[in-house]
């Protein structure tokens, strides 16, 4: 869990202002859903939280400390696609996280450490319903199974913050309910602060404890890039209401 503070954050690409003057404080363990039109900077914010892009001005603080602009184990990520390792079986895809964080020289665990890690992996595979597929390669899995694995892969390293970049955007609508149940279960169990970018407004209400809507407050038709987006609606969602809905 982590408190995330965003102060006077601007992101510009040359003349184009993507985000302007973003100020946010996200409480510990919040499930933040982010919606907004295409190109309004939702994913840009997520990429800055991930550490692969730097803000032009302003700062992001995690538990009061400035964010390091490089991907780090405290911030897990689930992309829409391509975040599984195609050369590893399901088991080894999960094991890799424990191996990378546990063995800095070889990137592999041996003996007792490996057996313990495998137990942890198998327990998690049971939890996400992929134990039967444990020896398959990612390309042999359905899209839903792949995303389940990708989420589990991020969670196994127990990040303080989990970033989800339209994780269910490429899936059939029929299986998203299962995915929602899974992500909420893992969130409650691991007590992470979650940021989820989505196109699906219904989903953002269903999952979030706090909903952020990104949009441009000002718009100049002669210079469409002159103004950036910021949070136009910041809606706290009652979790009990969500449970009823």
């Amino acid at each position: 869990m982590a408190i995330v503070t965003i102060r006077r954050l601007w992101k510009e690409y040359g003349e184009q202002v993507v985000l302007e003057n973003l100020n946010l404080t996200i409480a510990d363990g919040e499930f933040v859903t982010i919606v907004g039109a295409s190109g309004c900077g939702k994913t840009t914010l997520l990429r800055m939280l991930l550490g692969v892009e730097k803000p032009t001005r302003g700062e992001i603080l995690i538990d009061g400390a400035p964010l390091v602009y490089e991907p780090a184990p405290e911030r897990g990520i689930v992309f829409q696609r391509y975040s599984l390792f195609p050369h590893l079986t399901v088991t080894r895809n999960l094991l890799l996280g424990l191996e990378l964080s546990g063995a800095h020289l070889t990137g592999r665990l041996f003996g007792r450490a490996r057996r313990q890690a495998l137990e942890q992996v198998h327990a998690l595979l049971n939890e996400i319903g992929l134990y039967a597929a444990r020896d398959k390669y990612p390309s042999q899995l359905s899209g839903g199974m792949q995303q389940r694995l990708s989420i589990a892969q991020s969670v196994i390293c127990q990040p303080k913050i989990l970033l989800l970049d339209e994780p269910f955007g490429a899936l059939d609508p029929g299986i998203t309910a299962d995915m929602h149940e899974l992500i909420l279960r893992l969130w409650e169990k691991n007590r992470m602060t979650v940021f989820m970018v989505t196109h699906d407004v219904k989903e953002s209400f269903q999952l979030g404890t706090r909903l952020l809507v990104f949009d441009k407050k000002r718009h100049d038709p002669h210079a469409p890039d002159a103004y950036g987006a910021t949070v136009t609606y910041d809606i706290p969602l009652n979790r009990r209401l969500r449970a009823v809905a």
């Binding site: 490089e70 991907p71 780090a72 911030r75 992309f79 599984l84 390792f85 996280g97 990708s150 390293c157």
Partner: peptide
């Protein structure tokens, strides 16, 4: 994949 691996340590 490369970013994901880095978030895994």
């Amino acid at each position: 994949q490369l970013i994901k691996a880095q978030t895994l340590g």
